[in-house]
């Protein structure tokens, strides 16, 4: 009987672990700042893929706006920054967030950097890896309101598969196809979606969602 109880206790603990958000983020600053609009600026690129920054930029507006915040048009913002001499994303990221936000009338600025964006061939498998680091900074104080770091890996040869020449050839073909045209975009979108999930790592509901201010962590809610 004691064994059953302890199994039940372990099961409950595991379930509780799954239900609760992993390392709880401190949303106090975010909630105090209460941004309504978010400026998404060009991303810093730490990978060797020169196309990555622009392609990845295209995936950012939707997940952020879906959380209920006004998101400025990314291409317009990119072009205006370029015209202002800030065509290098690192220059944008090292600029004063308060000045950046003031330029556009934004409450906060989202700074993302691509840590990884690569496809590696490793023994009959191509592994596509994307990793991003996010930071949201307050336009009024320059303080960091929120950060996240998230990665996702796709393996062209997911399962082991039975032996035999057939599955070997299939693995090689799959790896080659993936290496030739890595599926960065769907992966990037999945990572952004995962980063925005709330409760969890993401943003609380913004002013345009019905759940605005209704989904705040109990401690901070008024």
């Amino acid at each position: 009987m004691t064994r059953n109880v302890s199994i039940a206790a372990v099961a409950l603990a595991l379930l509780a672990g799954c239900a609760a958000a992993p390392p709880k983020k401190d949303y106090a600053k975010f909630i105090a700042a209460s941004p309504r609009s978010i400026l998404v600026v060009p991303v810093v690129n730490k990978s060797v893929d020169v196309d990555a920054p622009a392609y990845f930029l295209s995936t950012l507006p939707i997940p952020v706006a879906e959380r209920g915040y006004y998101v400025f048009p990314v291409n317009l913002v990119k072009r205006l920054l370029e015209d202002d001499g800030l065509s290098d994303a690192s220059l944008v990221h090292s600029a004063d967030p308060m000045k950046l936000c003031n330029l556009f009338g934004a409450d906060a600025v989202l700074l993302v950097s691509i840590e990884r964006w690569d496809a590696k061939y490793v023994v009959l498998t191509t592994q596509v890896t994307v990793e991003f680091e996010y930071a949201l900074k307050d336009g009024k104080t320059g303080e960091t309101l929120w950060t996240d770091k998230r990665a996702m890996v796709y393996s062209s040869n997911g399962g082991g598969g039975g032996g035999g020449l057939g599955s070997l050839i299939a693995a090689v073909v799959s790896a080659a196809v993936t290496k030739a045209a890595p599926n960065y975009m769907p992966l990037a979108r999945q990572v952004n979606a995962a980063a925005m999930i709330y409760p969890g790592p993401g943003f609380p509901a913004g002013p345009y969602l019905p759940s605005y201010r209704k989904d705040l962590p109990a401690a901070e809610a008024q």
């Binding site: 392609y55 295209s58 345009y208």
Partner: peptide, 16 residues
Amino acid sequence: TYYAWGAYDEALYAHY
């Protein structure tokens, strides 16, 4: 989705 995005992100991607 909450908004009707259509193929907005794909339009941006194609542009880049």
